[in-house]
């Protein structure tokens, strides 16, 4: 554990908490892509199957459980509790275009051809693109609530901080994981456009609005 890794995890946790409290207190999931949330639930489910096979640390277990439970809680809020507020007409990204390539790539490029390892790899590939339906939704409506922007910023920062963690680990331990690094870079790059808008608009108190 190093400072980048810890900040990355906290940033991830913060993103999830921002999203849950936004939906819960506004009693609305307007502007939130349910499809991205479905992909995240698939990501955590496929990745954290090792909860029952290996013990890493109490921290590791607790965070995994929190990420899993919160992803399903988010789906519950969107699809059941506040389903009337779900903006499905703007959430039209075809997720099979992300799921299928992630499955094929995981079968072809992995560290070991075993069920758990392929599922882990699949989750890494899928996570790197899972935000696309949400970004697509923002671009389609041309705007995002500030709270949604904060959520996206925290979520995007997490993999960026993880890249620093990978640098640090390579530097100090000589340990690296090419699959996680490359996917993490792809994931972070996808947020770059958004990061720019966040810094130039949202942080200056303006609403995130895309030029027409």
């Amino acid at each position: 554990m190093n400072i980048f890794r810890l900040l990355g995890d906290l940033s991830h946790l913060l993103a999830i908490m921002i999203l849950l409290q936004k939906i819960f207190y506004s009693r609305s999931c307007a502007g939130i892509s349910a499809k991205s949330q479905v992909l995240f639930a698939i990501v955590y489910t496929a990745r954290y199957l090792d909860l029952v096979t290996v013990y890493v640390s109490l921290y590791n277990i607790s965070m995994k459980v929190v990420f899993l439970l919160s992803s399903y809680a988010t789906l519950y809020l969107i699809y059941l509790k506040f389903r009337a507020t779900y903006d499905r007409n703007h959430d039209t990204f075809r997720i099979e275009f992300l799921l299928l390539p992630a499955i094929v790539l995981a079968l072809l490029i992995n560290h070991q051809f075993s069920a758990l390892e392929v599922l882990w790899t699949f989750s890494i590939y899928l996570e790197s693109v899972a935000i696309l339906p949400q970004l697509f939704m923002v671009s389609k409506t041309g705007e995002a609530e500030s709270i949604t922007s904060h959520y996206l910023f925290a979520l995007g920062s997490y993999r960026g901080l993880y890249i620093l963690n990978w640098f640090y680990r390579y530097w100090t331990e000589g340990h690296y994981d090419l699959i996680a690094i490359v996917a993490g870079v792809v994931q972070t790059v996808l947020y770059c456009d958004f990061f720019y808008l966040y810094v130039t608009k949202v942080l200056k108190g303006k609403k995130l609005q895309l030029p027409a």
Partner: peptide, 10 residues
């Protein structure tokens, strides 16, 4: 098959 160490990252 190669040994894959437990993954620490989340």
């Amino acid at each position: 098959t190669a040994f894959i160490p437990p993954k620490d990252e989340l």
